[in-house]
Structures are given as structure tokens and as C-alpha cells.
Design a protein around this nucleic acid. Sequence first.
DNA 1: GCATATAGTATCAAGAAGGATACTGTCATG
DNA 2: CATGACAGTATCCTTCTTGATACTATATGC
Lengths: 124, 124
Amino acid sequence: MAKARHSRFDCTPGCSVEAAIGLIDGKWKSIILWHLLSGTLRFNEIRRQVENCTPRMLTNQLREMEADGLITRKVYAQVPPKVEYALSDLGRTMEPILRALKDWGDANIGLYGKPLGHDPRDAA
Amino acid sequence: MAKARHSRFDCTPGCSVEAAIGLIDGKWKSIILWHLLSGTLRFNEIRRQVENCTPRMLTNQLREMEADGLITRKVYAQVPPKVEYALSDLGRTMEPILRALKDWGDANIGLYGKPLGHDPRDAA
DNA sequence: GCATATAGTATCAAGAAGGATACTGTCATG
DNA sequence: CATGACAGTATCCTTCTTGATACTATATGC
């Protein structure tokens, strides 16, 4: 999904599928969104939940998703800095997608890796 | 989604999301799968439906999805060659994901591009 | 005989994505 | 005074993905 990202929506049938995927593709985006479903998070909170994502990449992905209107970024004029990330209304509309992905993954991840521990969001 | 593809399923919570995405990410996979929802297709039929996908890329994506067990490849010992691609049972379980993506895309693509013509699959 | 269709492969090159590491400034804590 | 937390930046480097193009073999139709 390299080139397409924010440019090519030339709309062959099926491209709405691609359009949607284009927004959540990017190595960390889907995970970040998934975590944000649980509520607002600060930069380093996300970092801790999304292990081995470097700050550079995290900033990167967050900025892209902000530009796409999926999340909001709220800066508090404080020191030390405080920045909160949350799903926008648009971002929240992706929940069915995220959930479909999660459900599929939970059902089939045995094929590719080891199963997960319990995740609180599954109760929702 | 470069590195992860078929290697890293180290399962932080949320990684089942990533696992699922890892399989349909790849510039053309989701579109190909979407088209295969309508039924079996031959190589060049897919090519024609997925415009500007070079044969190299198409082979590529099809082979990866075959390796992931999402599609089946049936070769007829004929000349000229005939090869049919179809969703496997596993592939069919991805329909909810594909549909969620399509629904979201249809609802929101206005934000990023122009709307689509009618697609027969929407009637299903 | 020539073009066309089939299902690809081979080779080369470009560009983008991602990773590693170090660094910023200010405040509170020890 | 030194350290850590916060939210990032900056720089460099490697790898992956993707694109463009040309090519394969055989059978059929013209």
C-alpha cells in the first residue's frame, strides 16, 4: 500500500474498499485506532501500549491519521507537555471495521501465531 | 505494513487486528478479494477488473494470498493455459471485513474522492 | 504466415516505508 | 546538581514494495 495512500482514488469498482484500507494501513495505524477505541490516550501512553513503535513512527502515524480526520489532537499549554489523542467522530465510524478485523484475527490467528491474552475491549 | 507481513505476530493486544490486516494489505489484495466474492475468476479476468495492476504484481499478490490460504488456484492442463482463482473457505470468512471496508468506503469516500458507479455486489 | 490470447517470468530501477539513534527544552523529584 | 518524564525532531540508513518493460510457449483464427 505504498503509493496510493493519500493520492489515488481513481475509483474502479471496489476502490472504496481500497480507500478504507488506505487509511488504516500503515504498520501501526490499526493498532493505534484499536487502542483509542477504549478512550483518549496521551502520546507516551500509546507508546507504551504499542511496543516497539519508535517515537518517530508514532508521530508519523498519528499525524497522518489526524490529517485524514480519524483522530483529534489536543495540546495542553503545560510544561511538561501534555497532548491527548482521541478518535474523531469519523474515526469512531471505523469501529465496525476494526471489530471485524479483530474478530477475524481472534478466530484465525491460530493459523499464523500464538493466541492472545484477554483484552478488555472484547467485553464491550 | 512493510516488514510485518508474514513474520511478526508477536501478539501485543490488538495484534489480531494487525494479523488480519496483514493479510489483506498489499496494494491490490483487498480489491482482488472483493472481486472474487462474486465468483471464480481467471488470471486475465482479474487483470481486466483490476486495472493498472501489472501482471507481475498480480501474480505476486495472488501467490501471497494463496500461500496465506485465502484463495485457491486451479490449473487446467490446457493450451492456451487456463487458471482459475477462487476464494477458499478461509477467504470467504473475510467477507465481513471486506464488506465493512466497502460500507465505510462508500459512506465516506466523498471525503477523499469521487463516488462510484453501481456495483453488483452491493445487492447481495 | 501473422496476430492474438493465455498465464505468467525476468530484469532493472525508483521511491517510499520503516528502523536506529541521538537530541531538544522545561519542570518536578531525589 | 543530576535524573527522569513529557512530546516530540532530526538525521541517516536499509529494506521493501512497486512500476516499467520485454519476453516465454502454444494453439487458434484470419
